[in-house]
Design a protein around this nucleic acid. Structure first.
Lengths: 142, 142
DNA sequence: CTTTGCCTACTACAGGTGTAGTAGCATCAC
DNA sequence: GTGATGCTACTACACCTGTAGTAGGCAAAG
């Protein structure tokens, strides 16, 4: 039977979409998330609410404070960890071989040799360069 | 609401697992699929049967002939197409940027620069070599 | 203080998914 | 032919997911 909706259970498509908005918005309320959705993704307020609730159950977000009668949430699971997990999932499809995966990208023309080259250069400088970039992007708290 | 179980609808995890066995086995029966599953994946005969049935509804396999009273199935959806689809799905997570995806693989140490290098070489010879490789890998029919 | 409005906690429900049971027909070994 | 076996077609069912409605509470506006 399908997975239990407890801590670090896998996120569904819709849940991930909401979490994504949380990443963009930082600490935010249900309404803010709703408003941040594009026209064609708009759903009912309660739908977002339910999804946020489920995300909370799965430990992907947590409520941090209450302002007035509104609850503010904040992502716990980071974009990076999440992506890592999903990619790991995907890799199983390729027998755990990331090379096969990239190879697939190449064959289907999704990525080009030029792209790979660029990535290599970027990676080389990032790793071998000074020390270790720790700031990542400009995390404006909110 | 979730997707309809009609032609080329997305495959669920379990369905994909079964299809995978079909790829390995080639034309095969429900029992053969069941028997080919490893110890810890073993499920009831009827479970496999149901999954094969759903795969059929989704157009991923088709019944080719009947031997005795047993039905033989054959994959319609190829491993390659399937993978391509899943990767495309995943890419949306990375804003459609395959570079970000590979970048993630690098950062998490899932793939190395050496791997990329090897892939590039392989790709270069395959593409730029003679004319156009049309056989891909040794596609032994079945 | 009452009204108005947004917020939250439940509840709901149809369709998907994972897993399996049952009934009945087709075959094969006698 | 007859019984043993295995196969297929239904049926079942709990849990997940996507989406939303409802009731009731807090708080700002008047």
């Amino acid at each position: 039977m399908p997975k239990s909706r407890t801590a670090n259970a896998p996120l569904s498509r819709a849940e991930a979409r909401i979490l994504e908005q949380c990443w963009t918005l930082g600490t935010c309320s249900v309404r803010e998330i709703l408003d941040s959705l594009s026209e064609d993704e708009r759903v009912a307020y309660t739908t977002v609410q339910t999804l946020v609730h489920r995300l909370e159950q799965k430990g992907a977000v947590r409520r941090v404070k209450k302002i007035g009668n509104a609850q503010l949430f904040e992502p716990v699971l980071g974009r990076h960890e999440y992506r890592r997990g999903v990619v790991r999932e995907l890799l199983q499809l390729f027998g755990g071989s990331p090379r096969l995966l990239v190879s697939n990208l190449l064959e289907s023309g999704t990525i080009t040799l030029k792209d790979l080259k660029a990535l290599q250069d970027a990676a080389r400088t990032a790793t071998g360069d000074s020390a270790r970039r720790k700031g990542r992007r400009g995390r404006r708290h909110v």
